[in-house]
């Protein structure tokens, strides 16, 4: 569960999903940031990061996710996260992330909400 992997699993023009596995450290955060920027440059405006297979994240990885959030907001888009482990959900709650990003319990709910808004 600690080896990082990133997989874009779905993109239908304005909405894309990034499926993340493993430890989000500096390298993992940079990989997410690169892929997110590529998708945003292609016109994606609703980006969902699925953390189902991620149990640990560090503050360097978090800071890189904040760059993605800032970029998404600057473009008038929405950044969502789904399937957070309780400890990552608590981390995001401590940071106040729910004020700026959407947090969903599962991917189905997330896609339904994001598609409705896009």
């Amino acid at each position: 569960m600690e080896t990082f992997e990133l997989r874009p699993v779905e993109s239908d023009g304005s909405l894309a999903i990034l499926e993340v596995t493993g430890y989000i450290n500096n390298e993992g955060g940079e990989a997410i940031s690169r892929e997110a920027c590529r998708l945003l440059d292609q016109g994606v405006r609703s980006l969902l990061i699925d953390l189902q297979a991620t149990r640990i994240i560090n503050s360097i990885g978090i800071s890189l996710l904040l760059e993605v959030l800032e970029r998404t907001l600057d473009l008038g888009g929405t950044l969502g996260f789904c399937c957070l482990s309780p400890s990552i959900a608590k981390t995001f709650q401590i940071m106040g992330l729910a004020q700026y990003a959407r947090l969903f319990p599962d991917r189905t709910t997330a896609l339904s909400e994001l598609r409705r808004r896009s």
Partner: peptide
């Protein structure tokens, strides 16, 4: 750290101690 300031600032890091205190 405050998220609003971090989002608009250059330095996004600086969460470590705050997270430790809450966790």
């Amino acid at each position: 750290p405050y998220l609003e300031a971090k989002l608009h600032g250059n330095r996004k890091r600086g969460w470590g101690l705050e997270l430790m205190r809450h966790l």
